[in-house]
Design a protein around this nucleic acid. Structure first.
Lengths: 160, 160
DNA sequence: CCGTATCCACAACGATACTG
DNA sequence: CAGTATCGTTGTGGATACGG
C-alpha cells in the first residue's frame, strides 16, 4: 500500500529536500500555532484580539504566526475602521490561503474519526443540504468542490 | 469566505482547545520530521536505514518521530527477516495512517501550485489512466476515492 | 547494521513590559 | 486595544557514543 514510482529517475530523486513540496509547504506553516491561526481564519476570525482569545497561545506567538503567514502570502492585512475608532488592519486569507482548506479539513476530519472515535464535538456539513463534508483524494475531474463558505460547523453536544 | 456557524453554542465553544480536532491531530504529528516520515511511508519506505537516507534529519530525530507515530498508532512495527540476516522490524502504516493520505497529498499539491508555481518536480497521477490526482473538499457521496497504491509519482524533469 | 541514550546548541514559546 | 521587543525557559534537533 504505497505509491508507485514511474522510473529510476523519480526513484533516485523524489526524496531530495529541494524537490520536496511537502517540506517546503511545512516550512511556511512551520509551527502548530500557525496551523491554528489558519484554522481560525477559516472559522471567520480576522482581528488580532480574536485570535488571542480563541487560540491557546500568547500574543507574541500569534503575532509571529501572523507575520509568517503574511510573508508566505497566505494571509493579507486589510484596513478597516470601526465607527468612532481609528483605522486598523484585519487579517484575511488570500486565494492561496483559501486553497489550504483541504489541509485544515483533512486534519480535522482525521481527528474526528481517530481521536474522537467518530463522536466529535463538531461536525462539518454542507450549509444547504446538511450532507457531511468529506475530503477525498481522487482523479475524477468532475467532483463538485466545496468552499469554506459552503460549510457549516455543527455542534454535537449540549451544555447544561 | 469563511465557515458558517450553526448556533450560539457552537459559536461560543468551537475554539476551546479540548474540542479542537486539529490541535489534537497536530499534537500527534507534532513536528516537521514526523510529517516527512509519514511522506516516506506513503512513498513505500519501511526500513530505518531508508528513512535515515531519505529524510534530512538525524537518526535520533527519526527514531523519535517513528516512536511518536507508533504510539499514535499511525505506524506499526512488523517483523521481517532478510535471508541470512537476523530478524528486524520494519515500519508500516496502519489503516489510521493510510487515512492521513489527504493530509500529505493536500500539503504536497498546495506546494506544487504555490511554491513551484505549477511546475513542480514531481506530479501525482492515477497509475492507470495518467489523470492528475486532486484533493477535494466535497459533500458528494459518490466520489471515487484513490488509495496510495493507485497513485504514481511522475518526474517532470530530466538530469543530464 | 539497527536503534537508542546522552549531551549540547538553537529555535519557539510565555511572561512581562513597553509604544502607538 | 493592537501589536512588538526582551528575556528566561522549554522543547526539538544534531553529533557522538554506545549496545543488540
Amino acid at each position: 500500500m504505497s505509491m508507485k514510482v514511474e522510473n529510476q529517475l523519480a526513484d533516485r530523486t523524489r526524496w531530495r529536500p529541494e524537490f520536496c513540496s511537502i517540506a517546503k509547504t511545512l516550512d511556511l506553516l512551520s509551527t502548530k500555532t500557525t496551523f491554528l491561526v489558519l484554522r481560525e481564519c477559516f472559522y471567520g476570525t480576522s482581528r488580532f484580539e480574536d485570535f488571542v482569545n480563541r487560540i491557546p497561545a500568547s500574543a507574541p506567538a500569534l503575532s509571529r504566526a501572523l507575520k509568517q503567514l503574511e510573508s508566505a502570502q497566505i494571509v493579507t492585512r486589510v484596513p478597516y475602521r470601526d465607527p468612532g475608532a481609528r483605522a486598523r488592519d484585519e487579517y484575511r486569507l488570500t486565494p492561496a490561503g483559501e486553497d489550504l482548506l483541504p489541509v485544515v479539513m483533512s486534519l480535522s476530519l482525521w481527528g474526528n474519526k481517530y481521536i474522537y472515535n467518530g463522536s466529535p464535538p463538531f461536525s462539518f456539513v454542507d450549509a444547504r443540504t446538511g450532507q457531511p463534508v468529506r475530503v477525498c483524494v481522487t482523479t475524477d475531474n468532475d467532483v463538485p468542490e466545496a468552499q469554506s463558505s459552503d460549510i457549516e460547523i455543527r455542534a454535537n453536544f449540549t451544555l447544561d
